[in-house]
């Protein structure tokens, strides 16, 4: 027996609204607009059984793409209202870049979702190219602890990126 539509909407919301909302806030820095865009996006998906039937990564990609386009549309109409004119280049080639932009955002979002300790060692290790010895010195923790934190930090990243469909 198929799930109740209300449960379907709730599970869609629970699975996707948080990341979607952070994504739109990241794009717009406007929480009220983000509420609106996320609601509209979830609603559109929910009204399309063929979209809801897609496997999780494809559904997620669809949601983020729709949210992004809603943001772009909103900016366009705002520009028209205020006649900003030529100070912003037209949004070209957006569709091609959506996947890559989305992945980059999901990865940054996963980084932000790590615990402070995990995030710290990962930033030092990967983005600042420091060795475990350098990190031990800077962070005043034993080298073994650095390795252990990196181990758990990278596993947490992997899990998070699997959940968001970036990797398997």
């Amino acid at each position: 027996m198929p799930a109740e539509p209300s449960e379907l909407l709730r599970s869609l919301h629970d699975a996707h609204a948080p990341a979607l909302w952070r994504f739109v806030v990241h794009l717009t820095n406007d929480r009220a607009l983000a509420d609106d865009v996320v609601q509209e996006t979830l609603l559109r998906a929910w009204q399309r059984p063929e979209v809801m039937a897609r496997p999780e990564p494809a559904l997620r990609a669809w949601l983020f793409t729709v949210a992004r386009h809603l943001v772009i549309d909103d900016r366009r109409s705002a520009r028209q209202r205020h006649e900003f004119g030529m100070d912003r280049p037209p949004e070209t080639g957006m569709a091609d870049q959506t996947d890559k932009v989305l992945d980059a955002w999901l990865i940054a979002d996963a980084l932000a979702g790590l615990s402070k300790e995990h995030r710290e060692v990962l930033l030092h290790s990967y983005y600042q190219r420091e060795s475990t010895a350098e990190m031990a010195l800077k962070l005043q923790i034993p080298e073994g602890t650095v390795k252990s934190r990196l181990h758990y930090a990278l596993r947490a990243m992997r899990l998070s990126l699997q959940e968001s469909g970036v990797t398997r």
């Binding site: 709730r10 609204a17 952070r22 992945d103 940054a108 932000a112 615990s115 983005y127």
Partner: peptide, 26 residues
Amino acid sequence: LLAEVAPADALASVPREGAEVPQNLL
């Protein structure tokens, strides 16, 4: 995958806090 985030962006990112989806969204 980490390479897809520019180092400057990664280092400037802050832990997620207070940026939680509003309860009244549903």
